[in-house]
């Protein structure tokens, strides 16, 4: 049975580089690629009543945008490689959501690009990359 590799895309150059590396690896190992886009979201935020009302439509459009502007073009670009590809969009805390997707699809590896978070940002909010490294049950490859 072929293995699955999860790639975290966010529309940035780092994500693209991670995808390149993951694609190479997938060809060598005959693995399936899972392209994911995580929309940063927390259930513990504060909104106006109007925002609550619009939330459902906004969620739909966020998912659509992630698919149309990032996941689908990337998947199309890899069409000729013959790799088998799935895409998934999720809302959540980025590191936690990646771990959840990894569990759900039973992937054997995660690839992501370095996010280039500033030191201050990581100090205040914690680094997504290190949170993922701490929580992932499978090997994680961080592509610079």
């Amino acid at each position: 049975m072929s293995q699955k590799i999860l790639v975290a895309l966010d529309g940035s150059a780092g994500g693209k580089r991670a995808l390149e590396a993951a694609a190479k690896h997938a060809m060598l190992t005959d693995s399936e690629l899972i392209l994911s886009y995580i929309i940063d979201w927390t259930p513990y935020s504060f909104h106006t009543p109007e925002e609550l009302e619009e939330r459902h439509q906004r969620r739909e459009s966020e998912i659509q945008r992630a698919n149309e502007s990032v996941l689908e073009p990337e998947a199309r670009a890899l069409k000729d490689s013959g790799l088998s590809i799935q895409t998934v969009v999720r809302h959540g805390k980025i590191a936690d959501a990646l771990v959840d997707v990894a569990n759900e699809f039973g992937v054997s590896q995660i690839f992501l690009g370095r996010l280039g978070e500033s030191r201050l940002h990581s100090m205040v909010f914690g680094s997504v990359t290190s949170a993922l490294l701490q929580n992932s049950k499978v090997p994680v490859t961080v592509v610079p």
């Binding site: 259930p43 609550l52 969620r59 959540g92 959501a97």
Partner: peptide, 10 residues
């Protein structure tokens, strides 16, 4: 249903 309005937010 993540991304929808959570109970906390409501």
């Amino acid at each position: 249903s993540k991304g929808e309005v959570s109970h906390f937010q409501a």
